[in-house]
Write a protein that binds this DNA or RNA. Structure first.
Lengths: 225, 225
DNA sequence: TTCAATAGTGAGTAGTCACTCATTTAGCGC
DNA sequence: GCGCTAAATGAGTGACTACTCACTATTGAA
């Protein structure tokens, strides 16, 4: 199998990412064209000839900047991964979370949801590419899980455990609570973006988030007042 | 755009589906090989030459049974769609739901979750293909939403509304409750199959479902007894 | 046994793919 | 304008693509 592993693969790209502005005009236009085509037709269905044409560049120029077609994919996908995990992994995670921990859990959830929803709405196409290709490329899937997921999980679970001790949350296994928190967020995103665009708009994004947090905290079951 | 629409596309396949056993040996082996390859490397990355080799068949034979490569994809995907929506759309939906309606909502949710989870575990590869290709092929995505989603939505929302009146559920908008119900299910599946296989196994499937239903009904917030 | 229909074959076709490389162009200090 | 370097080019390459077609093998009813 000898999978390329994160080191040789994506993380390398993430590190070389510093210089978004250090790209040449042509290079940026190749990236822009690739994002468009990959999002519309998928990576495999987009040819380097098409990318070159869309970018207004000779096919050879592509390979001066990216040593293979797959390299373009990684260059497209890496920055999104960084943004996605952003607020969570930045140096001062602990500091941020010490601040967060003071707030009520419902408010933390609410802020998390509206923050991530914004991010997804404004990066729709690249995120689409990211998810599509995560199906096929082990490196991308693993990087996605490692960056967006595992990184978050420990931190959030610790917060949850603290909130359980503080009697703000019910004494459930923290990984189950974490799953509930994430499920609600994913459902929110999925319904808004894909499944149910029409019905979703019956309420504003803000209202939908409030409903979601309410249900997460209090459930849907009826209780006598 | 002139998209093929469901009539010309998938639904036609679903209708021609009756005769799973009327296939020749070779034809079945072509399907089996396609499922394997599509699931492993994706539709675009699997060549007809590979499929033929994997199926132990001449390449020409493929095109005797399926008029194009895309036809194979539809033939792979259509039966899953039928199974997925199965228990919901079968003739006697109303009858089933009249029976279901008597049960407590928590029990309905619990049965729904364990039923769909079983289905997904035992059809993992074809469902993977279905989701992958739903990104690219409008017909598949639309058929998926039309069959699995919209079909269910109305029925379930009516049930929810009845349960709200019966003071079994809180008076929330029914589409929001429906979203919560589905989000929890998707989260359950996603964590089990992809994100968190290890931690998930700390509890049995049954326990995980019970936790999920508990949180759906009662929330994660603490309340004085 | 005959005949027709269907199933199966695999070499062949035209086209596309990612990628290369000899050549041309552009930028710049002198 | 000269000389040098680096960027950009696009025709060319062999491998691979989905699909065709002239042909053979198998089946089953008359």
């Amino acid at each position: 199998m000898n999978k390329p592993s994160l080191e040789e693969g994506l993380l390398q790209f993430v590190e070389e990412l510093k210089d978004e502005s250090e790209m040449t005009e042509k290079q940026r236009s190749i990236l822009r064209a690739s994002i468009k085509l990959f999002a519309e037709k998928g990576f495999h269905a987009s040819s380097t000839a098409e990318i070159a044409k869309e970018a207004g560049v000779a096919e050879g120029t592509i390979f001066r900047h990216y040593k293979s077609k797959k390299d373009i994919l990684l260059a497209v996908v890496a920055p999104v991964l960084v943004k996605f995990a952003g607020p969570f992994i930045l140096k001062d995670v602990r500091e941020i979370f010490r601040e967060q921990a003071k707030k009520p859990f419902a408010q933390i959830a609410q802020e998390l949801y509206s923050n991530r929803l914004d991010l997804i709405v404004s990066n729709e196409r690249t995120i689409r590419i990211l998810l599509q290709e995560a199906f096929f490329h082990d490196e991308i899937r693993e990087a996605l899980i490692a960056t967006v997921f595992s990184e978050i999980k420990d931190t959030v679970q610790k917060l949850i455990e603290a909130k359980i001790i503080a009697k703000e949350l019910r004494p459930l296994p923290s990984e189950v609570v974490f799953r509930a928190l994430l499920s609600s967020m994913l459902g929110l995103i999925l319904f808004r973006q894909v499944l149910d665009k029409d019905d979703f708009q019956k309420h504003s994004d803000e209202e939908q988030i409030d409903f979601t947090v309410d249900i997460l905290m209090n459930g849907i079951g009826y209780r006598e007042p």
